[in-house]
Amino acid sequence: MPRRDRAAPVLSESTVKTHVGRVLAKIGARDRVHAVIIAHRGGSAAQRLSGSAR
């Protein structure tokens, strides 16, 4: 199916901010930059959530 024939998902800015905020809270990051540092140093968020981060 050509791309122009598909409906694009519509997410409001507040919805995106809510989801990002919840992800940051789950991994214990204060902002997106801190989330990148956590991921770089310790691996995936799944490892961090399970308590097996390096």
Rank of each mutant, 00 (worst) to 15 (best):
M1G: 14
L24G: 07
K17D: 14
S52W: 00
L49F: 00
A29Y: 13
V16W: 01
R4S: 09
V20R: 05
R48P: 00
R4P: 00
H19R: 14
I37L: 12
Q47F: 04
V33S: 11
L11P: 04
H40Y: 13
R22Y: 05
G21N: 11
V23F: 06
T15Y: 01
K26H: 12
V16I: 15
A39G: 05
A7C: 01
L24E: 10
S52I: 03
R48T: 03
R6F: 11
L24P: 13
L11V: 10
A53C: 02
G28Y: 13
T18S: 04
I27M: 08
S14F: 07
A45W: 11
G21E: 00
K17W: 03
V16Q: 04
R32A: 13
R4V: 07
E13F: 02
M1R: 10
S14Q: 14
R3N: 10
R41Q: 15
T18I: 05
D31F: 05
V23A: 11
R3A: 13
H40E: 15
V10K: 12
R22V: 00
A39Q: 12
R48F: 03
L24K: 14
R30M: 07
R30G: 05
R48K: 15
K26F: 07
R54G: 11
T18M: 06
A45E: 00
R3C: 03
V23Q: 07
I37T: 13
A8V: 06
T18G: 00
T15L: 02
I27W: 01
R54F: 00
M1K: 08
V36G: 10
T18N: 01
